[in-house]
Design a protein around this nucleic acid. Structure first.
Lengths: 148, 148
DNA sequence: ACAATAAGTTAGCCATGGCTAATTAAGTTA
DNA sequence: TAACTTAATTAGCCATGGCTAACTTATTGT
């Protein structure tokens, strides 16, 4: 037992490593994307986005939001002075728009496939961050082919 | 500005909260699932799974693996005495089997849909942890309808 | 205008999942 | 068998993203 496992498929292993790394990286951007998308939604709905609202929507405590907003600010996606309202930068707005689009594409795709709309919404929330450009295009093609 | 945002769609908000929570929960099980699946693979390929191999496949350092194995052990998915080989419990084997099946279903579905096999493999790694039972069945139906 | 309420922030805790450096155990070979 | 090499573990660090409690700032209403 414990023989020195040979390396029969180094290439495949390296690919797999890259995959796992890329999933870990995706997790890092998930929060950022969720926040930006949500902020855009809130601004659209209410004219402004408050930490309180974000906390409620995400189901987390307010200080958690404050902490995460610091990151968005660091990444220049929002403008935010203490006790003042949150604004999206151009870059933030752009990211929000593409997240929103991607989210809707995934939802519509799942629905077109036959998934119930509640489950489609639910699964899309998790799936959207892990869909590559290629797959997204396939999804889009499928959904639009189906709806027309 | 800063008017007390009314609650126009409490139900929808609660649903969204549950969605975000469930994504956070899914992230917690991701590592567990990835490890168990990988351990099963290694045992199948080499007859045993060593921390070294796991570290290599995941692209992380060995101590990281040691740490995470403690969690799998705590959750009774593996048997592992220090410096000894890793074994899956019945529960672990069961989980590994269902993860493997789900993984393959997602990959095959994406391929059937027209995604290239490399990208399908890559995206499946991220997507698989966020697919509900309902969606999985739809995927399976689509793939098997397509291949026969 | 000022007291009460609501929102936001700060400080400081916890768990997780990365890491490196140092140690210990096991396996191999001269 | 003794020395060397490889694998595994331990200790201890860092960042992230949760949390509560306490405090500060804004807003509202009398």
């Amino acid at each position: 037992m414990m023989k020195p496992h040979s390396n029969p498929a180094t290439r495949a292993v390296e690919d797999q490593v890259r995959q796992f790394e890329s999933v870990r990286t995706a997790h890092q951007s998930e929060i950022v994307e969720d926040y930006v998308e949500l902020i855009a939604d809130l601004i659209h709905q209410y004219g402004s986005a408050r930490p309180k609202d974000i906390a409620e929507r995400l189901g987390v405590a307010q200080p958690t939001v404050t902490k995460n907003l610091a990151r968005l600010k660091r990444e220049k996606l929002i403008l935010h002075e203490p006790y003042r309202s949150i604004q999206l930068t151009d870059e933030g707005r752009q990211l929000a728009a593409s997240c929103r689009k991607r989210h809707r594409t995934v939802v519509e795709f799942l629905i077109a496939l036959g998934v119930s709309s509640e489950v489609a919404e639910h699964d899309a929330e998790g799936i959207e961050h892990h869909v590559s450009e290629e797959t997204l295009q396939v999804f889009e093609a499928y959904a639009s082919r189906r709806e027309t």
